[in-house]
Design a protein around this nucleic acid. Sequence first.
RNA 1: GCGGAAAUGGCGGAACGGUAGACGCUGCGGUCUUAAAAACCGCUGGGGGUCACCCCGUGCGGGUUCGAAUCCCGCUUUCCGCACCA
Length: 825
Amino acid sequence: MMASAKQAVRRDSYQPQVIERKWQKIWEETQIYRVVEDPSRPKWYHLTMYPYPSGDLHIGHWYAMAPSDAAARFKRMLGYNVLFPMGFDAFGLPAENAAITRGIHPYRWTMDNIERMRKQLRSMGAMFDWSREIITCLPEYYRWNQWFFLQFYKNGLAYKAKAPVWWCPRCQTVLANEQVINGRCERCGTEVYRRDLEQWFFRITKYAEELLKFDGIEWPERVITMQRNWIGRSEGARVRFETESGGAIEVFTTRPDTLWGATFLVLAPEHPLVEVLTTPEQRPEIEAYVAQARRESEIERTATDREKTGVFTGGYARNPVNGERIPVWIADYVLMGYGTGAIMAVPAHDQRDFEFARTFGLPIRVVIQPEGQTLDPATMSEAYAGDGHMVNSGPFDGTPTAGGEAIRRVTAWLEEQGLGKGEVTYRLRDWLISRQRYWGTPIPIIYCDRCGTVPVPEDQLPVLLPEDAEFAPTGVSPLKTDEDFVNTTCPTCGGPARRETDTMDTFVDSSWYQYRYLSPHYDKGPFDPKAVAYWAPVDQYTGGIEHATMHLMYARFFTKALRDLGLLNFDEPFLRLFNQGIILGEDNEKMSKSRGNVIDPDDLVAELGADVVRLYLMFIAPWEQGGPWSSRGIAGVDRFVRRVWAIVTETADMPADGPESDAARRLRKLTHRTIKTVTADISGFQFNTMIARLMEFVNELSALRDSDVVRTASWQEATRTLTLLLAPLAPHLAEELWERLGGPYSVHQQSWPSFDPELAAAETFELVVQVNGRVRDRLEVPVDITEQQAIDLALASPRAQEHLQGRTIRRTVYVPGRLVNIVTG
RNA sequence: GCGGAAAUGGCGGAACGGUAGACGCUGCGGUCUUAAAAACCGCUGGGGGUCACCCCGUGCGGGUUCGAAUCCCGCUUUCCGCACCA
């Protein structure tokens, strides 16, 4: 007897390995996640950032994708036609490194990784529509990068210019920022420097102003702020300073009202006029300084806390507003990439200029006096950047600076005098897309001695990456040395010509992939306009905060550029954005192989099943926050799942022939209250509190497990509802339970349960009685209690009375549904 | 450095300006068992106590408010991004 009962229990215990495999197979056979355009239903496009195929799916991928899947499934149960695609961001540096260090071709390495990761992704049980998979390193994808490049080129959005790159003189190759370790080449340890190279740019700055507008999109405020700061709009004026050695230095200043206080100019070390202005006696020092600056990163150069360095060129310029002769210096904190690469230094009113002037003994002149005090350059300890009135400024003496008044008047005057003009500049720079690498999209340009720069005609796309590339251990791009690739004929004159050997930044691929998913195999253009009309733009985008500025800015730029080319008819690619946090190791540190704190999702799936992993990831913390992994924590979720399994399977075949007792009615109310709160939670991606509510619900069911309530309609409603509420979170578990409850296939084609507001409403609440803001009593009262009744009850409370002894009541504060606060004198 | 964010028990976290610590973990005690595991039940911020009670408590220092974890000002620490990693 005992033995067979135990066996029966064991045979019917929760076996995720069995049910997960079973349902994944059935879902695939019945293609329930395949989606097509359906104008009869509202669409919902949920996009989660596609992974780089680095090798194995790690827990971070799960953390991005599993809750996204739950959100997408929830929308589907609400009746939306939901598109939830997946693909691979397949070009990039690691594949090329594997080729160099291990002799594996980047294509092989990448495709093998994709094969493995695809399997791992399937184990998650997500509703990805695999028929729409995209892989960016395949010609059917990257030819459209080339096509976009050509459209941009034709429309002045792609251009070539010199820009600095990290150069290793030993390897004779360009290095990425991450390949430069403490100023040295990661491969050979040689000290590296920045060298100018002709490279391709996309003119994102044309859209700087529009990119500052976030109308119609619901993005986290912090991302919007970061993008605003990244674009860095400044209003000011451009002013010309004539030099004595010929040529003029143009500076941009946000404070034209301080022009009379400009006592020297500072050029970026890379500024073209440095060469002209430098006097013979200053030359050795200047050249040494320029060489030094080329070894420093921008972060180092612009650090405001380090000691100011710089060198006098020996040259002078004229301050256009007062004719004063002022020296021209160079300093590394001035960057060629911002403004004009030259600044006028006003040490009295700019902190960096002040420190520079103090370091080198340059004059400081006060031209803005704050009201009620007098600044003296000799005794000032820092620059004064506040308001006041102009002094030592010729015709403008006495002009108040408050409200930008002085800036407006001086700018107008500069324009009148022909000395300068009002201007807006941006910190945002044009997007440098050239990479001196093999594993990327070839830039479709041909150089002909006779015809110059010639774009590859559209009908000759794609320009294919040569397969038989040689990967030198130095890292020199194999395209450069591939004669068959480089040598071609000019499309215009038919003469001998050379191909561009630079490839594109992988951010080009990810700037429009959201549209390729809509018609992944369309070959008449980058996307089928009909599919775009139905699905685009993305309704919900989810991914890491690390993409706040670059990827998300580039994708916005692409959408606006494609709109202006007539390819799209909307302004923004992603209507809503959500950034998930990161999962740390059990030691609260970032997961890394060297720390040995990496959690492998494959192991967890094998041991506990995908549903438990999914649930735990959603339970661990608020999704936008993330947090440390805990083996103990996931064991708790495993217990929860087993309890759900036991309660539902044990009572699945129970007849609902019992009477609806008070306990059953209370359960019914709890069921509806749970639907209400859980729906609100999942709508806002509050998965952790959603699961906590479900745990409370299950704890209650557990308490009733051995009572008569299990034989009631209320119990059946409760277990069916629980299964439906779990469906987005734990899709396999829910499907299996649904089947055992006798529900029709598939639980994922059912509607999200709705609640009866009357049943979900509470009948009483706990009225808190405070005296002077401190809790003194709690009273169970009906929800429809009036203010007067609540106050009377509070005043009558013996516990409150104790604290009211000998005091005068000044006032009472009533918060409906919550509390009464009695305030005494 | 610049830009962005965060800080609550032993741990992860919960909390429309209104009961701080839901839910889970850990720990302690118990039920069941020859025993253990599992499962189930109870307790679990600190201090005091006359044990149906009081005081303290949300990184630190101020402020606003009848009332502050929550809002404001000033700090500290930690994390993320900084344009060729993706």
